[in-house]
């Protein structure tokens, strides 16, 4: 065959496969939304699931997912910032830095089920926190922390080094420079990365099955006492999340409309993750404009 002919065939194949991937995504999203959207209603989003009857909702699961996400971020973000700032601004090239980098890489490569098992062993059993929201949040912290460290490190590294020098020349301490000069510049990148990682946390199930548990107690949404067992805010109660619920309904669901529930819950999950993605993009652009253009500040 002539090289030109081969070239044409190869190019068409590459284009075909690339477009095939686009088709996969369109198909996936289309299928989930097509199957799921018809099942989503206010009632579905707010009512509790039914064990064997049809018509159950995912209200507590949705709430658990969101609450768990908030709890996880409250723990992870400050820790990730600390370690990330160290890696970006303080760590000098050497054995120790290389070792910490390796740790972050290994931690972020652990399968989430292994993280979940570790949580089961240490947090649920050893620390005796049981299947609870807080156990889940701590497991998700292990899962999310390495990512947060990377996000922070990259965000700080992308700040022009002249900013730091200007701070030094004014006689500021390094920590002051980091927190008041560099941090505001790095913040948009950090927030964008955090929102994206939040999407990942929101959809995580394997790390939660054996930590946050696979059940949710009867919640009383009028009870806002965080220590009461039926309060939705109680961090020591079991908390089945939306993602875990999808898995459970698929593998052991007894309700006659189990497939519809799984479809509806999947749609909710995917839409939420999409919103996180779009939110991250939008927010990144918004902050960038706000920081660089002549809009009024403070």
């Amino acid at each position: 065959m002539k090289p030109r002919t081969v070239d044409k065939i190869a190019t068409s194949l590459i284009v075909f496969f690339a477009l095939f991937i686009v088709a996969i995504l369109v198909g996936l999203l289309g299928y989930i939304l097509f199957r799921g959207l018809s099942h989503i209603s206010w009632d579905f989003l707010t009512s509790a699931p039914q064990k064997i009857r049809a018509g159950g909702g995912v209200g507590p699961q949705l709430f658990n997912s969101l609450f768990l996400l908030v709890l996880t971020l409250i723990i992870t973000v400050p820790l990730g910032l600390g370690a990330g700032i160290f890696m970006a601004e303080y760590a000098r090239p050497g054995k120790l830095t290389g070792f910490i980098r390796l740790i972050v890489e290994v931690l972020s490569s652990f399968p989430s089920i292994v993280v979940g098992l570790f949580g089961l062993l240490l947090i649920v059993n050893y620390f005796d926190l049981g299947f609870s929201m807080i156990s889940g949040a701590l497991a998700l912290t292990v899962f999310n922390l390495p990512l947060m460290v990377r996000i922070t490190e990259q965000a700080f590294r992308s700040v022009p080094k002249q900013q730091k020098e200007a701070g030094f020349a004014l006689g500021l301490s390094k920590w002051k420079i980091v927190t008041t000069v560099l941090f505001p510049v790095a913040l948009p990148t950090i927030i964008t990365g955090t929102i994206l990682s939040a999407g990942r946390v929101f959809g995580e199930a394997a790390a939660l099955m054996f930590t946050a548990g696979m059940s949710s107690p009867r919640l009383d949404f009028t009870n806002w006492n965080p220590l009461s067992p039926s309060s939705p805010l109680n961090p020591f109660r079991p908390a089945e999340t939306l993602a875990v619920h999808i898995w459970k309904v698929n593998s052991e669901g007894l309700a006659p409309d189990a497939v519809e529930i799984a479809a509806g819950a999947s749609a909710v999950l995917v839409i939420t993750v999409l919103l996180f993605n779009l939110g991250a993009r939008f927010f990144g652009r918004f902050i960038y404009r706000k920081l660089t253009a002549s809009k009024r500040m403070n």
Binding site: A18, I21, V22, I24, L25, L28, L29, Y31, I32, R35, L196, G199, R200, F202, G203, E204, A205, A206, A243, V244, I246, W247, N250, V259, A262, A263, S266, L269, V270, V273, L274, F276, N277
Partner: peptide, 28 residues
């Protein structure tokens, strides 16, 4: 535009939770 088209596609594929992949695998 190849990058403009595929970049978000790739990011969204990466963002879909694994239980959703499992659900689609099971039903498609």
């Amino acid at each position: 535009w190849g990058k403009k088209l595929l970049q978000p596609v790739i990011e969204l594929l990466a963002g879909i939770p694994s239980v959703v992949y499992g659900f689609i695998g099971l039903s498609v």
